[in-house]
Design a binder for these strands. Structure first.
Lengths: 71, 71
DNA sequence: ACATTCTGCAGAGTATACTCCGTGGTGAAA
DNA sequence: TTTCACCACGGAGTATACTCTGCAGAATGT
């Protein structure tokens, strides 16, 4: 599984679980709304700084966002 | 703990545990030697693509490289 | 139908990740 | 001392992450 897809899936899943829109998450993490959208579509490879900031907002560990979910 | 420091510490620790030099790791991960050096000194925030490639060479999960070690 | 919220996406610009060249310093072994 | 493997670090260039603006489509509610 590509790491971008893993990250994108976890990002979207945790974001929706917290009831946050892309815009609200972007604002809290001080990122651009369209960038969050792009990350969920695997357009870019986020830097670990961004992973850390998003994890903080979503109240998960940074490593959680890179864990491949077994389902 | 800053995420760059966590990543840098894990990178260095796993690399040395595998008995790899920065240059050998760089070659296997198709990255530049000076870049690996810089990552271990927290100069840059690696992209998750790079995290994935390094994890593969070190034979660990990408998320392992972002886990804060308790010590 | 209409308004509103959310998201996808394009284009252009800026910041920074990443490469490639080099130099020099340290420590271990011959 | 000399050699050698390893690493820190600088500078300049290229690739790409990230921002900003704007427009349009889908979904939801009135």
């Amino acid at each position: 599984m590509e790491i971008r897809k893993i990250f994108a899936a976890n990002l979207k899943r945790y974001r929706q679980a917290r009831g946050l829109s892309q815009e609200e998450l972007a604002h809290r993490a001080e990122l651009d709304r369209t960038y969050i959208s792009a990350l969920e579509r695997c357009v870019y490879a986020a830097s670990i700084d961004v992973v850390g900031r998003i994890a903080e907002v979503l109240e998960v560990k940074p490593s959680d966002l890179l864990v491949e979910t077994v389902e």
